[in-house]
Design a protein around this nucleic acid. Sequence first.
DNA 1: TGCTCGAATGTTATGTTATAACATACAAAG
DNA 2: CTTTGTATGTTATAACATAACATTCGAGCA
Lengths: 140, 140
Amino acid sequence: MTDRMQGRNAAYVIEALMQSVRPLSAYDIIAAVRPRVELAPTTVYRALRQLISDGKAHRIESLNAFVACQHGHGVEPVHRHGDGLGFVICDRCGSVDEFIDPVIGERVAATLVERGFSASAVTLEVRGVCATCSDKAVAR
Amino acid sequence: MTDRMQGRNAAYVIEALMQSVRPLSAYDIIAAVRPRVELAPTTVYRALRQLISDGKAHRIESLNAFVACQHGHGVEPVHRHGDGLGFVICDRCGSVDEFIDPVIGERVAATLVERGFSASAVTLEVRGVCATCSDKAVAR
DNA sequence: TGCTCGAATGTTATGTTATAACATACAAAG
DNA sequence: CTTTGTATGTTATAACATAACATTCGAGCA
């Protein structure tokens, strides 16, 4: 009961996410782990819920897809929504970049305090085109 | 060709959104306008795309649902993602509150400039429990 | 008038994302 | 060796979203 046990399905899922540059939908994950193993949607969503609550994966709301957390693989705490965690998502190449801006975290927190609102999750996502893809477009 | 023409379907849809306290999914909207009129999903999504690009409605990504814009019904410009526009969503009563924080807008913009990232949309959503619902829980 | 063009709309089918509901396995604690 | 809780498996279906193509309708104009 070390709080580290999370079953082998979660292991398959996080592995698939870590090996992918792009976010994966639940069904992408099913395809990615096949034919090594055949997972049902339910199973994948269960594993994802677990991984997300452990801070090892994030859901990208605007894509209905999932990514492995890019940080916190050492001693430092993993990134959590609510600390000014955000994602920059390129619609051209699909890359996702995680960032933290404490000032944003503070401003959001202030807004919530002002309202007496108790937050369970904060989503910050930017969609657009990354520098690399812009350059490519210019280069042609 | 005044750029204000947008067809009667959009009118039905925005009306349904404005009359609702809570966000509505596309299928909720279909139910809301029935039996006055019977709209197909395609039709509703088309109208929503239009309304959103006009700034008259917003998509709540974390709910896969839609709300009417709460501001900008006078001369002032409508709210747009990217100016620090955000939503505070109560998971208990379903209420959605729109807010603007220019500081957040600036910080996000700065992050994007730093990366040479060109944004097309910014999503900021907070899920949790509003003051009213918290009070109720305590009061019982 | 009647042509033509584009925008809006309608229709059908299907693709994609997510969960409900219930059955089984399996390990640790007692 | 039984109880209990967590993980897992299975089937079905709910909920969200778009593709592809047909039709209607109004504005501008020959």
